[in-house]
Structures are given as structure tokens and as C-alpha cells.
Design a binder for these strands. Sequence first.
DNA 1: ATCCCAATTGGCGTAATTTTCCAATGCTTT
DNA 2: AAAGCATTGGAAAATTACGCCAATTGGGAT
Lengths: 152, 152
Amino acid sequence: MELDDRDRRILTLLQQDCRISNAELADAVGMSASALWRRVRALEEAGVIERYGAVVNPAEMGLGFEAIVHVHLTRHDPDRIVEFIRAIDGCVEVQDCYATTGQADYHLRVLCKDLAAYNTFLERFLFRMPAVASAQTNVVLRTIKRNRPVSL
Amino acid sequence: MELDDRDRRILTLLQQDCRISNAELADAVGMSASALWRRVRALEEAGVIERYGAVVNPAEMGLGFEAIVHVHLTRHDPDRIVEFIRAIDGCVEVQDCYATTGQADYHLRVLCKDLAAYNTFLERFLFRMPAVASAQTNVVLRTIKRNRPVSL
DNA sequence: ATCCCAATTGGCGTAATTTTCCAATGCTTT
DNA sequence: AAAGCATTGGAAAATTACGCCAATTGGGAT
């Protein structure tokens, strides 16, 4: 889908606040509510907008421990890698997971109640997986930025 | 704020889709629309819900390059660190930034149009900052999970 | 067990918003 | 200039959010 400046403007605003009313958003980008509504709908259908979600504060939900984990896999078995990915996908503690170049094969962001819960995650989950050769934990000391609206 | 099971249920559903109607959400958690609405409002006011935002697909917006960057700072000047954080905060390419323990001082997630744009980001922005001693780029090959709803 | 109090709930009416429909406008191609 | 196509604005219809008030629930004191 081809995006013009108005679409980009709409997307920027909707990323910041998707509960803004159609009329207000229409005003902000300089068009009528109905025309705007159709554009938003097109963006949804094209998959540019994946979903609308509430952004919650993990600390307020009692999740006080966060870490970036560098995971190194054993080189051997492709089936085990598939199994690893499936397991990661189903693990609620893992917020993000990227396959990357560089020293680590995967970068995870893990969110837990506390250090004890994180230890349990490592012992019962991550280190139990045959695909995992080793993992290096980088505890998050401070969150400078999280999930900023995508620009452009 | 103290959260009960219903609050957690509400938060889980709102993270997945915050455009669900009050009536539908009320049904899903088994309460009346008005009672539910009050709980959602309380969650907003307590800051458990930070905001409501559209989740966009970066690839669809023409952002085809993503990397996790490990940043190492020079040890010397605290003012430069403050400057670094301020600069990061204002940089649209940087989606996430965490101060961490471990070898790297900061973990960034950077999103750009392409490799050339990323190179520009490094030369014109990251490597120009006095606080930055070195940075290691880990190109994202595949996104397994991104920003999953926080559980519990 | 009974009373009392506070907190939470459900139902309903009103105001606001979303969504659809239709005619009008502007841009391209012939 | 006319025809075809995509996009627009406005107004009506359907849905939803929001606030009020009475009813219900649960805990603590007597």
C-alpha cells in the first residue's frame, strides 16, 4: 500500500492515542470525518495498522524485573530450533524475541515479577531447552524509551 | 493500586484490542457495562494503563531495517551521559532504549528505512556523541515476537 | 445473628461517536 | 472537452460511551 503524507500523519497520531475521536483526528489532518474514517479503515485492511492495544505499565502490574537476554544456540539440530521458537512464542515472560546477527543468535526481553521469578524462568524454561547452548542476562536498570511510535 | 483477577482479565483483553466496546468487554469479564467502565477508568487514572495506541507494521511503512545495538559509554563525564540520554530520547530511529548491566551499558532497538539510512544514523548521530565509546550492531534477521501483551 | 457502613454493582437515559449512504468534487486519460 | 475513476464532504442511522441513582454485597462491631 502506498502511503501519502496524510496517512503518515494519521498513523503518527493514532500510535500516540488511538482513542481520539474521528472528528478530532479529521480536524488534525484537515479532512472530513467520513473521508478520514475510510482512510483509517484502508490502513487497517492493508495491515499497516496491526491492532489497537492498551499500553500498560508493567511495574504497576507487579512486574518489577526486566532483562535483555542474549541467547546462543547449539549448532546442531534444526528441529530443536523450531521447537525453541515455538516455546518462546508461547512463553508469557518473553515480551520480545529477535533473531539477530552478531555474537548472540537471539535477543529476548523478559519481564518477571522479581529476581526469584526470573531464576525460575531460567531454570525451568530457558536452560531446559536443548537448543539453548548458553544465555547471558543483562538486567534492565532503567527504561529510557519503550516502544516509541514509529516515525516517517 | 491493587489489582484483582477481573482487572487482570480486563488488562489482557484491552492489550489485545482496546477498541472492543464496553458492552462486549463487560460480557467477557462477566459484569455490567457501567461497572466495567468504572474499573477501566480507575486503571487509567492509576496509571496502570498508560495510553491506547495503534500498533503499526514497520515494514508496511517502508522501514525495512532493524537492529539491536549494544552501546558502550566512555566512563568519564556524567554530563555527557545526560546529553546522550536526551539525544536518544529525541531520536526517532531509536524505538527502545534500556540501560543494562552486562558488557553493554545500553541496549537500543533502531528502526530505519534501509541499510544506508542506518549507516547515516551511525555516522551522523550515534558515533558523533562524545559519551559513546563504541557500539556493536546486531541486525534483526527475523522478528519472532514483538511487544506481546503483558501477562499476569 | 443483626445492624451499620462503605464499596461496588447493575440498569437506564442522554450525549457523543461511529458507520453508512449518496451526491459532489477533482484528477487522468482519451 | 468528455468520460472514467478515485476521493471527498455532509447528513442520517446505528452504535457506543458516560453519568446518575437505586440496589446489592461484604466486612466489622455489637
